[in-house]
Amino acid sequence: MTGAPNPSYDNILEIKNLQTSFFTKDLEVKAVDGVSFNIPKGKVLGVVGESGSGKSITSLSILRLIEEPGKIKGGEILFKGENLLDKSEAQMRKIRGNEISMIFQEPMTSLNPTFTVGQQISESFRIHEGLGKKEAKKKSIEMLKLVGIPSPEKRINQYPFELSGGMRQRVMIAIALACNPDLLIADEPTTALDVTIQAQILDLMKELQEKLDMGILLITHDLGVVAETCDYVAVMYCGKVVEFTDKKTLFTEPKHPYTVGLMQSVPQHDQDVDGDLAVIRGSVPSPADMPQGCRFAPRCPFATDLCRNKLPDLETDEEGNQIRCWIYSDEWDGDPEVNVHEQSKSTS
């Protein structure tokens, strides 16, 4: 759609050493600090992390939606082989909502309350495809039908407040998919929804992803959602990717102590836990005093002097899985027999 012939590419999106910072008077907060990952064509990548890990800022950086005092400081964002950071604002505007779409957590705040659902879906058709009013309306009805909204001819004239939360999220998805994007960024798309509605929306996203063969970047904090929808997973902590693997490896053999801690600390509805839950002690460090070594070292039960003093690199193994942890390097100075799956169960 951009006109120029695309060079061949395997990954719909490749992020290389992305750095996005926010500047205050005397402080630079490195929200995204050297993030790299790929999304192969037609695959779903889950990005997992807690608040402040930089997952949402990463997605906003891809669309170049970072506002003052934030700034993308460096790195590359290759979308279909072309670096988005080299594009002009006018070119970006053509890409947003057309080739890359985004859906947000709260559909009520991202839909315009003063326009009907139909007007909001038609907008993308009219802007990006230059369709006329009538034609856009017809296509909008088709989109609503696609996302499973009953009697779309009626719904199209309704305002967002007349719809339930699940319906609104379906409308958001309809808008996002209107122009057949190659990449969909979904930032906690089901977090605000009830589980029975979440199940409907996840099923819908999976179904449409297969039908339209698009890549999805799914940002979530819910490991269950990851397990059910993603092909690959990137775990983020304090602005860095600490582990990147295919889904199966993540759930059967998580390597990073943070990943392991996350998995053990979430009680599951289909498993019993004896006694106390495993916890990750302490809390996420403040950006103003980020540890100089591994960001996770102060909370890690296995941390050694090496971890506290030197930041590990993101290393790739022969299967393409990536890990940022000294335990798996030749330089490791702790117990060589260390088992990251045995963490302490202290309460404080």
């Binding site: 199940a199 599951q268 509805h269």
Partner: peptide
């Protein structure tokens, strides 16, 4: 239905999801 709708981290578990139609 409520229990079956919760996404599970157990990749092996064969789940029969009961998808509820519509809204509350």
């Amino acid at each position: 239905a409520l229990l079956s709708a919760i996404p599970s981290t157990d990749l092996e578990a064969k789940k029969e999801r009961i998808t509820l139609k519509g809204d509350v």
